[in-house]
Design a protein around this nucleic acid. Structure first.
Lengths: 298, 298
DNA sequence: TGAAGACCATACGTTTCATCTATGATCGAT
DNA sequence: ATCGATCATAGATGAAACGTATGGTCTTCA
């Protein structure tokens, strides 16, 4: 049965003119889009594109599909816009990367609660998820990773941070500052399954001949931190998770960092316009400034 | 993101008036439909049904969704009907249960090839799949399981068959006729993963204290038969898979059978109307008659 | 009032499949 | 020839759709 995502892929190819750009447009990789179009074609029993070199061209069946596909996508978007519970005006919908500690947002939330009648709504998700929501205007702003070449959205960078090995404060390496990866062969580890650097982290250790035992795998960083403090094991985690009782130690040769910032659904929001938006931005900014300061002091 | 299947569930509930009947209508279980509706509601951020006892009632958001959902489903159906490659008129689209041996269909195909200008098109699928295609008129007739209370489609029963243990012809039990399940403790087995009786089969053996070693798991019955004949192991399979070199032995106490027949997308097809349909039916019927005969001789 | 039945929700395990990474094939251009 | 651009294919993985089992809440009826 034909599914929605296949139509989105199809429309993206029509818009973009080739598979690779289309894949970027819908935030998937090129092979993913390729098999998606393949499934659609098989499902319909008709080729949709002529894959000449240098250009894809709609077949007759493709042209026929196009009208339907556009109609369906428009209707879906309508639906998502209109059926949802009408939120109070002045509500800022903020997407939050799920690998960002909620502690960073407490300040924002409380300042909004005390600061007037504007409301705020938080939506968690991974990077792809959030970008998708931004594109479809389901959120107004996202607190997420900022990639170097970001061109789809207006950006306001907030801070950059590294990753460290997190261990309980009483751990042998707690005060070391830096530790070499290959010394960690006997450490029990905890896997943060949704970490942006999951594959890089595992490569880092395997390259150093370390095959750690994993005591826990979770997508909940707050739980992970609690278990690290309790002594179950150690983990690799962004520096902003620093908190009392948790020691953060740099891993020698693990030189990754991430840039966190705000992505805006519409460029106008990025300016100084919109009282509630402005207020929220300021709150976030000050909040992050604090954090960076703490981290430096650490 | 809202997906097509969720809208189908939603429409089914609106049509059927309660979740259980709706689930039957879209060929899923009630819990499956329940969580599907739940996802849709969470995705929209609004309740769609008031679950009063005895009746579900549309909320305001539900009413708003209804129009969009109907429009989208209509458009999807249109699309599937119109965009597909126009097949030559007179083509009979036959759905075939994937656990039915293709050998049964060879006769049909060759008789169609020699029998005039009518064409035939075969579509494989499991039971749910085929029922879905029938309902959406993507196939004209399905050669599949016939359930006792079938009321959605016109039915033409063809034959009933049991299941047997399939072993190579030189196997110790090959000429036994019947064998007790608990004697098979040391047999290597092959799992037919899409078998309708997979869970019943595994229960049959566990109840008799048999925990077989599985040498192969496949969804391809022709490969399975080939491997059984080659001596890799034994398997439980419908009797119609009988062929030279393969011994079929009844399992004592394993008294399951399946009824195979034709389900028709439209009642008119079930009659004597339609020259090419008629011809195809006769071919199938005679084909199956042959098979039953062979099986009796076995 | 208590047992039974109809109905929906939840928990948990399994399987499917959308997606990823890695790699190959094809074609133009330099 | 080689490189870069493009799409296809293969294999692995993780998310989620789905089924089975079960529990809770009504209504009905003895």
């Amino acid at each position: 049965m034909i599914d929605r995502y296949q139509l989105r892929y199809f429309l993206a190819v029509v818009d973009a003119g080739n598979f690779s750009r289309a894949a970027a447009q819908v935030n998937v990789t090129q092979p993913t889009l390729s098999v998606g179009i393949g499934k659609l074609e098989k499902g319909l029993g008709a080729r949709l594109f002529l894959r000449n070199s240098q250009r894809v061209q709609l077949t007759e069946a493709g042209v026929r599909l196009l009208a339907h596909a556009r109609a369906i996508e428009r209707e879906f978007n309508d639906l998502e816009g209109r059926v949802s519970q009408t939120r109070p005006v002045g509500t800022l919908r903020v997407g939050v990367l799920s690998t960002i500690p909620i502690r960073l947002l407490s300040g924002l939330v409380s300042s909004m609660r005390s600061g007037g009648e504007e409301a705020i709504e938080l939506i968690e998700g991974n990077e792809r998820d959030l970008v998708g929501r931004l594109q479809r205007r389901r959120i107004d702003v996202a607190l997420t990773l900022v990639r170097p070449g970001e061109s789809r959205f207006a950006v306001e960078p907030l801070f950059e941070e590294g990753y460290s090995l997190a261990a309980p404060a009483w751990h042998a390496y707690a005060d070391a500052g830096v530790v070499a990866g290959d010394l960690l062969a006997d450490e029990v580890m905890i896997v943060r399954r949704h970490c942006e650097l999951l594959s890089e982290t595992s490569r880092y250790f395997t390259e150093r001949g370390v095959r750690p035992h994993f005591a826990f795998r979770s997508t909940n960083d707050e739980r992970t931190v609690a278990l690290v403090k309790a002594g179950l094991g150690v983990t690799v985690i962004p520096d902003s998770y620093a908190e009392p009782g948790l020691a953060l130690v740099k891993l020698a040769g693990f030189n990754h960092s991430r840039r966190i910032g705000l992505l805006f659904a519409s460029p106008e929001l990025a300016g100084e316009t919109g009282p509630q938006a402005l207020q929220a931005l300021r709150a976030l900014a000050s909040c992050c400034a604090e954090r960076v300061q703490k981290s430096a002091v650490r």
